[in-house]
């Protein structure tokens, strides 16, 4: 699924599109506020949905090769986080939907949770 479609499904705002390639396909996603869990189980995921806002969210995505971070419940990253993400080529988005709804919408649309 094109990232643009994900944005439409979640009515999400792109936060650093001018610095990243947004014409990408995404297949898998994970949702967690616990970065330790993302590191343990977030393999081969294209998208991370999270309600956590601190620079280690960007670092975790960087180490895990996660391409897109979507902040749920209308949370917004700080300027410092946006700059770090842009530097690493990680796309940031924000949706007003809470975690459960955002994950459900993407799953229903065909985005997979990937292998366990």
């Amino acid at each position: 699924m094109k990232l643009e479609k994900i944005g439409q499904i979640l009515d999400a705002e792109l936060l650093n599109g001018e610095n990243c390639n947004i014409d990408i396909e995404v297949y898998t996603a994970c949702g967690s506020d616990l970065m330790s869990d993302v590191i343990s189980y977030g393999h081969e995921k294209d998208v991370l949905l999270t309600g956590l806002v601190n620079p280690q969210v960007i670092r975790t995505a960087e180490m895990m090769d996660i391409k897109v971070i979507i902040f749920v419940r209308g949370k917004r990253p700080t300027e410092c986080m946006i700059n770090l993400a842009s530097e690493k080529g990680i796309i940031l988005m924000s949706t007003k939907h809470p975690m459960f709804t955002a994950c459900g919408k993407l799953y229903s649309a065909g985005v997979s949770g990937g292998s366990v």
């Binding site: 616990l34 343990s40 956590l52």
Partner: peptide, 15 residues
Amino acid sequence: ELGFGAGMGLPNIKK
């Protein structure tokens, strides 16, 4: 609260 301290750090390093 910062998203760490789940007790997975050392096991992850080993893994």
